[in-house]
Amino acid sequence: MNKLSTKHLLGIKNLTKQDIELILATADNFKEVINRPIKKVPSLRDITIANLFFENSTRTKLSFELAEKRLSADVINFSASGSSVKKGETLIDTVNNILAMKVDMVVMRHANAGAASFLAKHVNAKIINAGDGAHEHPTQALLDAYSIKQKLGTIKGKKVAIIGDILHSRVALSNIFCLQKLGAEVLVCGPTTLIPRYICALGVKVETNLRTALEWCDVANMLRIQIERQDIKYFPSLREYTMLYGVNKSLLDSIKKEIVIMHPGPINRGVEITSDVADSKQAIILEQVENGVAVRMAVLYLLAGRN
C-alpha cells in the first residue's frame, strides 16, 4: 500500500486504516526532515497552495503554512476578515476566483460543517479540510494519533478519554474515527448537555464523572469549552464546570497511574486544565504542535503525489 485511497482529505471518516498508517509512517520521515539543520525539501516546488481560513485559527494556520513552506510549495493566504466575502461573494465564487490564479491545492477552514466536501464536489483542486464547523478536523486527529503513538509506542488497545465540550468539537469527532480505526478504545466525558445524544452509536463509551473517566484511560485529551459556538447556556457557570470537569494536579496525583495529557489548543488555563498540569511532564501539548507540522507535511506530500 503506497498511496492514499482518496484525492482529498475531507475527514477521517472516509480514510481507511491503511491510509492513516501510511500518513503516520510518512510523518516519521518528515519529523526527521524538520529536525535537520536545513529543514526544507524541494518536493512540492511546482505546487501552489491556497490557505483559506474563513474562521480564526493560530496553530492550524501557522502549522499548515510552515508545512507547505518546508516542502517548498508556493503559498497564498486568505482570511475572511478584510476580504470580499464581507461584500457577499459566495464560497464557490471566492474559491473559483482563487483557482483561476492556477492554484493546485486548497486548505480550508470554514464555520459550516460540510464546507470542504461541498467544495471538493464543485471545484477542480485537491481539498484539505482544516476544520469545518463542529464536523471534522482530520489533521488534528492524525497528529493526535501520531503523538500518542510516539509517546506510548502503539495505539492499538490503548484507552483514550476525550473530555470537555464534545458537542461543539470537530476534534472529538475526528479523533473518535481515527482512534477507533487504529484499534483504540474511546470514551467521551463531559456534562450531559455537552455530549451529543446519539454519540453511543459511534461505539464510544460515555461517562459523566471525570474521576471515573481518568481512572479508566491511558490518555486524556482535554477539549476547550467553545463559548463562541454556544448559543445557549449549557451549564450554570464556568466556575462550576471547572470544579466538576477541570483537571488539576491533585486530582491527577490521586489517580494511581500516569496518564498522558493532551490538548489541541488553545488552552483556557484554569478552566478545563490548570497551569501546573498543562506544564507538567505528563502533558505532551507542545509535542503535539511539533508533530502537527510533520503530519501536515505528510498529508500534503501524499495528496500532491496522487495523480
Binding site: S43, L71, Y301, N307
Partner: peptide, 9 residues
Amino acid sequence: ITFYRDDFR
C-alpha cells in the same frame, strides 16, 4: 532521496 527526486507525481 525521495523528497529530492525529479519524477514526483
